[in-house]
């Protein structure tokens, strides 16, 4: 065993890439809520970019290592300590058996990622090792980590060169976000003024904010249906507007079918940011048509490719 959990935090899970190609069976994507930060952590320890790692939620985590290895922390703005001494995010950290590592609470952003050289050993369930909590599948026994859980890493790991993420590749966790988004399937069910306001409102993320989705507060929209539609497919990034008029943004664990008007869809280029939104954060939606969103996605891929060659598999 590589490490023992001392403090599990609010919700720490093992996450890797998404489950793909199973939405027609009702199986959500799951996977890292912020896959870019997962990839950055894995890059520093010599793993493939979507190898399983620990994902924390708001509160951080503490652990003791039972063998020597190399780890890296990315994601939300947070402090971290190795045996009580500060260590930095975005660099490889050599740890020895008996060392204790703590990641503090997130100061901005919502989730940190801790990658371990070799990756965490967990079973594949329905096409991914990622934890999907509502069904209790994937990851570590299908659940969030608890005190004294033991985490194993693959012993056949490459000893990575100790390195750090170049400055221009360290995403800044903010309390204020802009998400590029396209019109959704039922945009026409919003009154004309509401359609304009959807892209001209400073939303605040509500307290209902988790891996399934996030409530947007700060504006209420007029929906021209009874608010309910025939059940239709929804995806991570879909923004639905129920009859109470308050938009709801779906995240990685979102259900596959929804019954409320789909008013917008966060574009693929910015979908990885959703996992860092936390209650109280400010959000604006920036309208894009499909073609400009595609151009901006390709530009983002080009920007990241020198550091993360397989970036197109990540975001």
């Amino acid at each position: 065993m590589t490490l023992r959990i001392l403090k599990p935090g609010l919700q720490t899970t093992v996450q890797a890439g998404p489950r793909q190609g199973m939405r027609h069976l009702g199986v959500p994507a799951s996977g890292a809520a912020d896959p870019l930060s997962l990839a950055l952590a894995n890059r520093l320890v010599g793993n493939r970019l979507l190898a399983p790692a620990l994902e924390t939620t708001l509160t951080g985590v503490a652990m003791r290592f039972e063998e020597d290895t190399v780890v890296a922390i990315t994601g939300a703005r947070a402090k971290a300590w190795l045996n009580g001494g500060r260590v930095k995010l975005h660099r490889g950290i050599t740890v020895s058996a008996g060392d204790e590592l703590e990641i503090g609470g997130a100061k901005a952003g919502a989730r940190n990622y801790l990658a371990l050289a070799g990756g965490i050993v967990v079973d594949d369930v329905l096409g991914s090792v990622s934890t999907y909590l509502p069904a209790g599948i994937g990851g570590h026994e299908g659940r969030a980590l608890r005190t004294d859980d033991l985490i194993a890493t693959n012993p056949e790991r490459n000893a990575p060169d100790i390195t750090k993420t170049p400055k221009e590749y360290r995403p800044l966790a903010s309390t204020s976000w802009a998400l590029r988004a396209c019109y959704g399937a039922e945009i026409e069910l919003l009154e004309k003024d509401s359609r304009f306001d959807l892209f001209d409102t400073n939303f605040t993320v509500g307290n209902r904010a988790d891996r399934m989705g996030l409530q947007f507060e700060g504006a209420s929209f007029q929906v021209a249906s009874a608010g309910r539609l025939t059940s239709a497919p929804v995806f991570p990034g879909t923004i639905q507007c129920p009859e109470d008029g308050r938009p709801f943004l779906l995240s990685v664990d979102a259900q596959t079918i929804g019954g409320y008007p789909r008013v917008a869809q966060v574009a693929r280029v910015d979908r990885h940011l959703i996992g860092q939104l936390r209650p109280g954060d400010h959000v604006r939606l920036l309208w894009r048509d499909a073609e400009s969103a595609r151009e901006e996605l390709r530009a983002k891929h080009d920007y990241w490719r020198p550091w993360l060659p397989d970036i197109a598999d990540v975001i």
Partner: peptide, 22 residues
């Protein structure tokens, strides 16, 4: 396609738009 999901009276398909345009 990445995902092909049927609704009650619609079908939505997800594609890799880094490689395939609309």
């Amino acid at each position: 396609w990445i995902e092909c999901v049927a609704g009650i009276a619609s079908c939505v398909a997800q594609f890799d738009n880094a490689n395939v345009n609309l």
